[in-house]
């Protein structure tokens, strides 16, 4: 079974792809922090953030369809929740749209959520689509992100689809035996499947640990880091950090 990986298109060649992952991690994290702390009425600042991201997107030569698809996975969840705000929120003046009353304050909140989540999600997509996930992990390691967290992410990346496959196989085995019935019975079966999956993962964890010990694991994760930060990295990080910061302060 094949699954789309988190870091699809991270193997392309472009000025952005070639950067040291640390520069991208720091740059995009800064961009997100600056963006979410911007007051919602600084409309021009958001335009600058988005413009900067679109420029990076163009430089990275990522297929637009891929980026759009990724955005569509994440954004609806956020927007559906926020879309109700103008109708239920109070204050900030109100407008009458036929029979419905729309609150000005609610509209501002909607804009706030929409703008910030778009900029942040796009930043994460740019980061994950231009950096192979293993390199991202190593970058995090070098940036002193706690080892345990990096190891956790690394195992998740490696085993998430192994687990998904296992679940799919169980589901097939279940459906092959003409599985149907009352809701209560169904939920019981699903409960058993989840329990089986948990036990299998737990046992796999023990076997993986044994395999690590067998190769001399002693508590520390050692990895090789092949990137050398240079002028490009410094340039990128300062661009992505300083431009939004300047926009945020000046505009």
């Amino acid at each position: 079974m094949k699954h789309a990986f988190l870091d699809e298109y991270s193997g392309l060649r472009s000025p952005i792809h070639q950067l040291d992952p640390r520069a991208k991690l720091v740059g995009f994290a800064a961009l997100i922090v600056v963006c979410v702390t911007t007051p919602p009425n600084l409309y021009a600042a958001f335009a600058v953030y988005l413009g900067l991201e679109l420029a990076l997107l163009w430089l990275s030569r990522l297929p637009l369809r891929h980026v759009a698809r990724r955005m569509l996975i994440v954004l609806p969840f956020i927007l559906v929740v926020a879309a109700f705000l103008p109708f239920f929120s109070r204050g900030g003046g109100s407008y009458n749209l036929g029979p419905v009353r729309v609150s000005g304050h609610g509209l501002l909140v909607l804009w706030n959520v929409a703008a910030k989540s778009t900029v942040s999600v796009l930043a994460v997509i740019l980061l994950s689509s231009t950096t192979p996930f293993p390199d991202l992990l190593r970058g995090m390691e070098r940036l002193r992100v706690p080892r345990l967290l990096v190891a956790l992410l690394s195992f998740t990346y490696r085993y998430i689809f192994v687990l998904v496959d296992e679940m799919q196989r169980m589901r097939r085995a279940r459906d092959s035996r003409a599985w149907r019935g009352k809701w209560l019975w169904q939920s019981k079966v699903v409960g058993h499947m989840v329990a089986a999956l948990f036990l299998r993962s737990y046992e796999r964890g023990e076997r993986v640990y044994a395999a690590m010990l067998a190769r001399g694991y002693g508590g520390g994760m050692h990895t090789l880091y092949l990137y050398e930060p240079g002028i490009m990295e410094v340039g990128f990080a300062s661009l992505v950090m300083l431009v939004p910061l300047a926009a945020r302060i000046i505009l």
């Binding site: 490696r158 796999r204 993986v208 395999a211």
Partner: peptide
């Protein structure tokens, strides 16, 4: 001693 486990998904745990 190079010990190779039965299920390669246990042996291959890195990204």
């Amino acid at each position: 001693v190079g010990l190779v486990f039965q299920d390669p998904d246990d042996q291959l745990f890195s990204p």
